[in-house]
Design a binder for these strands. Structure first.
Length: 641
RNA sequence: GCCGGAAUAGCUCAGUCGGUAGAGCGACUGAUUCGUAAUCAGUAGGUCCGCGGUUCGAUUCCGCGUUCCGGCACCA
């Protein structure tokens, strides 16, 4: 007798061992058909495997997230089967599911072409139509290794050989294709259905290591039904429309060109947005007790040798030689410069914590393949600051900096921020004891912050562990923005000291912190986050005054003058065009407010206010309109004050 | 940096099986003075990414380079 408890709490009894299919069939025929796998006491299993003992059982269908994940997993296997049928000389490696889809990495001399993708996808649909049974087999490890070697599948053999002793080697067979897999899998290929699509080709290193062979990756997406697939493809299209590179051109914010790879040419509107960010940040920082400084962009190479940058970061640095043959480095970070400022005059323990901030433009020679619009550039502006403090102050200062970051992100409309904690990297300066100490202090602050965080092992800066604040772009790519780093190394290397209460000279701790991280990147994320519809206080162009007839020109000029005096950013549109033409044009470039003035408004000293995306218009007296808009255009900082 | 793809008018793109190119939108000029998301007509605009090679002739074919796009690796 086997008692099966279902999620609704009911219990069904069976004579002997049953399978997930049996249980599903006992409930309803349609459920039996929809069953993709089964969860036995919370563990996913193949639906056709016997359940020998009493258990809690849940039937997994495509309606559940786990079910969709299974579909994607099987789509990857079917992709591999199709590729092996069409290109038998190809070796298979791994094919996991990912967010919204799956991929499979193949080893193959010849690249796949976009045309191949069409053929492979067609073959996948054939395999689905064949509805091949998928069955799990447990193999002896040695036999499995030998088997795959004999098939010329050396990568698979390597994976199996690396499975820890004592773990079962489970293989799944579908038609003529057999693959190592932890499972579970669908009972047959037909269950995948047709809601899948191969998306793109890419290169990817074996085991993610750039020293290894580059494999050929095929990305695909798979969903429970055609509608979900269609919705997903539409979401991708929508995301493309908010791509900051596209909006950057459409809204005339910035451009990049061949002569300056990774360097931004800011146009007037883009630069206005950029300056708004700086303006906000500057005030916010002053409130938080920072002092703003500015340090040289080019400094003698020897300083970078002392700081450790030359050795650990040298490959990313621009060097420049002057006619007297002296070698300088263009700064990739602001920290050594700030230490020079700190070192001027004798500092007392009473001066600590000592805050120095800089909107510092840094240059880093990034790998060419990494460049990406504003998100990844070679010349960028950091809202960088360094907090010189005592050992006891570390935790408190990290906390303060992290709180500041969360507040600022909130003001810019981001409430979902992911935090990562990155500890010591292989390439680093300083002793293990010092690192132990720095990591412990940062972790303590992190725990006191009471935010969820992920570990990012080995990804700290070369001088200390760091917190990373991560935002996501329109198409799901994550970008690190703010950061807080505890540095017990660099102040010592560059000779920074303070006089402690006991009269002894001591080396201060330095906390590196950036709020936006890179202003360029944050600006890119902002563009995508708002899809170009910036909140009024950030919008580069806030108001367009548009006339209906040239009889209103003089009045329109007057309106704009009043707006300018009130501190609003406006433009005049006196062109001899229909008002609907003007409205369409300014709507397309996402100007938040349009003030329409015609003969009537000129006579009555009013304006017709039209908001972006709105249909209605509002007739206001000029004075009321300006007062209301000025109030509306206040930044979060001004509102809080 | 690595794998794959791309580069034609300001933008989006078509095209030439090798005989120096075209559309829509935009720009400009003129007409129109119009009430809330595209008024009409006309005109101009191209080193077909760069450098070599093959060829009578290259935007087209080949090679090298540059940049960009999608990934991987790297990272703010």
């Amino acid at each position: 007798m086997v008692n099966i408890k279902l999620p609704d709490g009911s219990v069904r009894s069976f004579e002997g061992p049953v399978t997930g299919t049996d249980v599903a069939a006992d409930i309803s025929r349609s459920l039996a058909k929809a069953a993709l796998a089964v969860k036995v006491d919370g563990v996913l299993k193949d639906v056709y495997l016997p359940i020998e003992h009493d258990a809690t059982v849940e039937i997994v269908t495509a309606k559940m997230p786990e079910g969709v994940d299974l579909l994607r997993h099987d789509a990857a296997h079917i992709l591999a089967e199709a590729v092996k049928e069409l290109f038998p000389e190809t070796q298979v490696t791994i094919g996991p599911t990912i967010e919204n889809g799956f991929y499979y990495d193949f080893s193959r001399e010849e690249p796949f072409t976009p045309d191949d993708l069409v053929v492979i996808e067609a073959r996948m649909r054939e395999i689905v139509a064949r509805d091949e049974e998928i069955r799990r087999e447990v193999w002896d490890r040695e036999e499995a290794v030998e088997f795959f070697k004999s098939q010329g599948e050396f990568y698979k053999a390597e994976i199996i050989a690396s499975i820890p002793d004592g773990e079962e080697v489970g293989l799944y067979r579908q038609g003529g294709f057999i693959d190592l897999c932890r499972g579970p899998h669908l009972p047959s290929t037909g269950k995948l259905g047709n809601a899948f699509k191969l998306m793109s080709l890419a290169g990817a290193y074996w085991r993610g290591d750039s020293n290894n062979e580059m494999l050929r990756r095929i990305y695909g997406t798979a969903w429970a039904n055609e509608k979900d697939l269609k919705d997903y493809l539409q979401r991708l299209e929508e995301a493309e429309k908010r791509d900051h590179r596209r909006l950057g051109r459409e809204l005339d914010l910035f451009h990049l060109q061949e002569e300056g790879p990774g360097a931004v040419f800011w146009h007037p509107h883009g630069w206005t947005l950029f300056q708004q960010m700086i303006d906000y940040m500057r005030r916010k920082q002053i409130q938080a007790g920072y002092q703003e400084v500015n340090t040289p962009e080019i400094l003698d190479r020897s300083l970078w040798q002392k700081s450790g940058h030359a050795e650990k970061f040298g490959e990313n640095m621009y060097l420049t030689q002057t006619p007297d043959e002296r070698v300088f480095a263009v700064k990739p970070m602001n920290c050594p410069g700030h230490i020079q400022v700190f070192k001027q005059g004798i500092k007392s323990y009473r001066d600590l914590p000592f805050y120095l901030a800089e909107f510092g433009k840094v240059h880093r020679y990034e790998p060419s393949g990494a460049l990406h619009g504003l998100m990844r550039v070679r010349a960028f502006t950091q809202d960088d600051a360094h907090i010189f403090c005592t050992d006891e102050q570390i935790t408190e200062e990290c906390l303060k900096a992290s709180r500041l970051i969360h507040q600022i992100y909130h003001d810019f409309g981001f409430d979902e921020v992911r935090v990562k904690y990155a500890d010591r990297p292989e390439q680093r300066v300083g002793s293990d004891e010092v690192w132990d100490h720095a990591e412990a202090a940062l972790l303590k602050a992190l725990n006191e912050m009471q935010v969820e965080y992920e570990l990012n092992p080995g990804e700290g800066a070369f001088y200390g562990p760091k917190l990373e604040f991560v935002l996501r772009d329109a198409i799901g790519r994550d970008w690190q923005c703010g950061t807080v780093q505890v540095d017990l190394n660099m102040p010592g290397r560059l000779g920074a000291t303070y006089v402690d209460a006991d009269g002894e000279r001591k080396t201060p701790v330095m906390i590196h912190r950036a709020l936006f991280g890179s202003l360029e990147r944050f600006c890119g994320i902002l563009i995508e986050h708002y899809a170009g519809h910036f909140p009024l206080w950030l919008a580069p162009l806030q108001v367009v005054v548009a006339t209906i007839t040239d009889e209103a020109d003089d009045y329109a000029r007057e309106v704009q003058a009043v707006l300018t005096r009130a501190g609003l950013r406006s433009e005049l549109d006196l062109r001899n065009e229909k008002i609907s033409y003007k409205i369409r044009e300014h709507s397309v470039t996402k100007v938040p407010l349009i003030l329409v003035v015609g003969r009537r408004e000129a006579e009555e000293r009013t304006v017709a206010l039209r908001r972006l995306g709105g249909k209605a218009q509002e007739i206001l007296s000029l004075d009321d309109a300006v007062a209301a808009l000025t109030d509306e255009a206040r930044s979060p900082l001004e509102r809080a004050a």
